[in-house]
Design a protein around this nucleic acid. Sequence first.
DNA 1: CGCACGCCGTACCGTACGTTACGGTTCATC
DNA 2: GATGAACCGTAACGTACGGTACGGCGTGCG
Lengths: 219, 219
Amino acid sequence: METDLISVEDGLTARQQAVLDAVLGLMVESGDQLTMTAVARRANCSKETLYKWFGDRDGLLKATVRWQAARVRAGRYDRQPLDAALLRESLADFAANWLDVISSSTSIALNRVAIAHAGSRESNLGGIVLANGRFAIGERVKPLLEAGRKAGLLAFDDSETAFRTFFGLIGRDVQIRLLLGDAASLRAADIRSDAERATDQFLALYGAGKFNGQSRQPA
Amino acid sequence: METDLISVEDGLTARQQAVLDAVLGLMVESGDQLTMTAVARRANCSKETLYKWFGDRDGLLKATVRWQAARVRAGRYDRQPLDAALLRESLADFAANWLDVISSSTSIALNRVAIAHAGSRESNLGGIVLANGRFAIGERVKPLLEAGRKAGLLAFDDSETAFRTFFGLIGRDVQIRLLLGDAASLRAADIRSDAERATDQFLALYGAGKFNGQSRQPA
DNA sequence: CGCACGCCGTACCGTACGTTACGGTTCATC
DNA sequence: GATGAACCGTAACGTACGGTACGGCGTGCG
């Protein structure tokens, strides 16, 4: 008897979390061979237990997505007080972190499953991934952008539009290529330089004249 | 007896093309219920014929991807002679066309199938989609970028890097959101304005000083 | 100790689907 | 009109997998 009954924030016991980690491992390795039998074997538990804990296959997938999302919680980026250097550093940190996430094998596998799901069943896996991925990070970065605007460092009308541009400058074609199986591996150094390039480009577009001096947001 | 035996460029008879269109239709509507029986019923053909023509299910999917790719062939964008206005127009046209493609239900369904495939089997569907999608358009736009550079309108070291930035400015988070089932419908007017915004931003980053006057490529 | 509970391992059931096989029909050719 | 090829519609087969049932085992509790 261990501390198995102590539930963590998600209401999951350690044993249940281990099961979800087994699901993630199978997703990364096998891809589609994510069968209930395989999960049970990998997690050393019985299928009966899987169904008791998670209801059905979809419930297991949902719990897995949420479990992974809870783990990836990255830090906030709205440090104060803000100056130009700190803003640039915060943006670049975020960009590097985001590239790290989307190029991780776990994220790729999870997004593949969610996308495959989105095309058919309506058990909104894709919505959960979006809410915990793209939208969650947007809400975490916007305060930073708005703080930058308040400090006179950035100029934009709509923080959502500005963020989406930053998002595009960071990700470019990386995510779709990885999802489609392109072996475009990103090394750590690549991630850092890509993040800084995206940040420089973003500041060139939305910086309020205190960065490169001549950059402005185009009409 | 019709012109059924006349093969088009792909070596597909009209009847076979009709079958592949049925596959596309099923992909868009049903998503995962893309069963051989459903295809046969939809196309009014027998399963025996499907297997004779396409070998197996994977062969049918591959043929479908290639058939759709052959249909989407967009025009080239390297018009000559090139001046600033024509370059901007060409870039915006390409951007609008690309947004049109990635937001079409056919493209979404096809990419979902290819991504689901990429996670498991190795019958490189994802590679085919990438080669005919992302990489094909890259090769078609690069001549335009290089012509722009030659004309002194653009400044960049590597056309691939410049194109990837343009790609990111155009697509931003649109494709991943659509793939994950977000109901972010793009209206035609949105596409046009988004394409022009992306073009303006790209020219602000890579334009050689003849557009907004003060824009430069950041370090 | 005995009992109940939770869980493991496995066998089992029903169904869906990829694939094959086959009888019947159309149609071009001789 | 006979023949053979191509093809349609459907039945049949084998397998994989989601979901359920059951026997056995360890453990906390009366």
